[in-house]
Simulated assay, not measured.
Amino acid sequence: MDNATGERAGYRRSAGSPRGEARRRELLEQVTDDVAENGLVDFSLRRAARAAGTTHKVLLYHFDGPEDLLRQAVVTLRARRIGNALAAGTAEAATLTARVRVAWHSLRDEESQLRRVLDQAMGLAMYDPGRYAALGRGASQQYLPTLVSFCPPHWPDQRKHEVAEMILAALRGFLVDLLTSEDGSGAEAGFAALLRAVEREEAAG
């Protein structure tokens, strides 16, 4: 606590300094790599410090405690996933249906550990919202802009968002099915149905 203001200190102490911000980003990338490899279970500042080759006091200088650091690591992991899906979807496909298909293949074929870690984050947010709500809060806001960008540009904004919400909800369910089923056949069948629905939306003009 900052005794003068009653506010937690955290990474605001390094805000505004290009060197401090660069160091914060470097630490975050290193901690994110550890979270991607080892998951969220038993995450702590000391574990994060070992992964970043520093001390927990240094992390507390740049981040607002372990929950803030973990939240930012999860956000960074989602951004990596979104970047991969966006790059694949826009480079190889021209229609919404084709982009969704390519994005799904990117998500389906990504490392199962990454899917597991991001699902762990959502699970923790639901299981203990008092402590981990931030891990789930804003997830849709990260994913939706990419899906909206896949939609035909002439569509009204409301329609883009409605279709993007439908696609996001379905893909989330399919990713969970991939992690919990033996062969993923349910996810593939569901995805085929989703593509038919998206094709109908495109055909409607």
Score class of each variant (00 low, 15 high):
F43P: 01
T32R: 09
L179A: 07
F191T: 00
D2K: 11
L179G: 06
L147I: 09
K57H: 04
M166P: 03
A9H: 06
D68F: 03
F43K: 03
R8I: 09
A139H: 13
S44Q: 05
T32E: 07
L40I: 15
E110G: 05
R137F: 04
A197Y: 02
E21G: 04
F43A: 05
A125Q: 14
T32C: 09
A36M: 06
L96F: 05
H62E: 08
V102E: 07
Q120Y: 08
N38I: 01
G53T: 09
D109N: 12
T97R: 04
R99E: 06
T32N: 04
A98H: 08
R12M: 10
A91D: 12
M166Y: 13
A192E: 14
A15S: 12
V31T: 11
H62C: 07
Q141A: 15
A169S: 15
G10N: 05
N84C: 01
D33L: 09
A187H: 13
L69R: 01
A170P: 01
A164G: 05
A91N: 10
Q72V: 04
G6I: 11
A139S: 12
G138L: 04
S181N: 07
L70A: 09
L27P: 03
G205D: 00
Q141G: 10
M126D: 08
G123Q: 08
R137C: 00
S112F: 11
R8W: 12
A48M: 13
D34S: 14
L124I: 02
L135S: 04
C151G: 00
V41P: 00
E92M: 12
V41E: 01
A91V: 08
A79Q: 15
T90D: 03
A187D: 10
L171G: 03
R24Q: 15
L96M: 03
G136W: 01
A203R: 11
D183G: 15
S185M: 13
D128P: 02
I82T: 13
K57S: 04
H161Q: 14
R200C: 00
D109Q: 08
R80A: 12
Q142V: 01
E199L: 11
A103E: 02
A203M: 07
L179Y: 03
G89D: 06
G53K: 10
V35E: 01
Q72P: 00
D42V: 03
L69N: 02
Q158L: 14
M1P: 13
S140P: 10
G136L: 03
D2F: 14
A4K: 05
D128Q: 11
L179I: 00
A134W: 06
F63I: 04
T54D: 04
E111H: 11
A187K: 08
D157V: 11
A98N: 05
Y11V: 05
L28M: 07
D33W: 04
D177E: 15
P66C: 06
A134E: 15
N3M: 09
R131D: 04
R131V: 11
L77H: 06
E26G: 02
E110D: 11
A193Y: 13
M122Q: 12
E92N: 13
Q158S: 13
D34C: 08
E165V: 08
A9N: 07
R116S: 14
G186D: 12
R19M: 05
R12I: 14
F63A: 02
K57Y: 02
F43G: 02
L28G: 02
L70D: 01
I167C: 09
A170W: 03
V176D: 07
L194V: 01
V148F: 07
V163R: 02
A22E: 14
G83E: 13
S149F: 15
A87P: 00
L147Q: 00
L194W: 04
